[in-house]
Amino acid sequence: MMQNTEGSAIIRMFHVHKRFGKKNALTDITLDVERNDLLLVSGPSGAGKSTLLRLLYLGEALSEGQILIDGMNLSRIADSRIPLVRRQFGIIFQDYKLIQTKTVYENIALVLEVKGEKTRFIQKKVTSVLRTVGMEERINSFPPSLSGGEQQRIAVARAVVGDPKIILADEPTGSLDSESAKIIMDLLLGVHARGATVIIATHDKEIIRDTKGKVIYLKDGLMMEPPMIEPLIEKKKTITL
């Protein structure tokens, strides 16, 4: 995993630690994510998957180490440039983070509004992305009136609408049946195919098994080699057989 050879990596983490008080949420993570990689971050609940993603979009400050995003050192960045860093990401939050008092349209449009896009362009983009996730009928609904799965689809739509360089997806299929999960995964794979770097945190073994990409495994904040999940896949196979 220590592949600091070439400078093409879009995300580089060097000996990153994250502590919450005495608790080590992440310990000594060193990791390069190349442009257009598809990275799966797996591991049990509480392993530190969400924390890892949060460090990348500056949702949390790291305790020790360095993170470079496209050459920018996150520890040295001026406060005023934090929004610019965040606009490089399309983020699907584990808890969706939709604004409850704004419509589906407004929630998705927000991503483009903060970038100062024109209204006409925003309208076109939002309608088209809603069609892709199959939610165009609910354009004027408010999140509380949507099911968990529907909200998750809106969260995905918001993450991809701005054509970001990097997608950070925290359990993007967490509350979906396998059918809807496949739609979302196909959508993310489509974005990946068009050149985006995609990082998916998940403990869904089927996704890990079925997705062609790099896999890292976290446990108690420590990064381990992917082979550790091999037995799971074998087990799964024996069950399905």
Partner: peptide, 18 residues
């Protein structure tokens, strides 16, 4: 009353001024 909303806005890249 709306700080959650603003927190979300910041996470998707809104500036202070926005």
């Amino acid at each position: 009353s709306r700080r959650e909303e603003f927190e979300i806005m910041r996470l998707v890249g809104a500036t202070d001024g926005f």
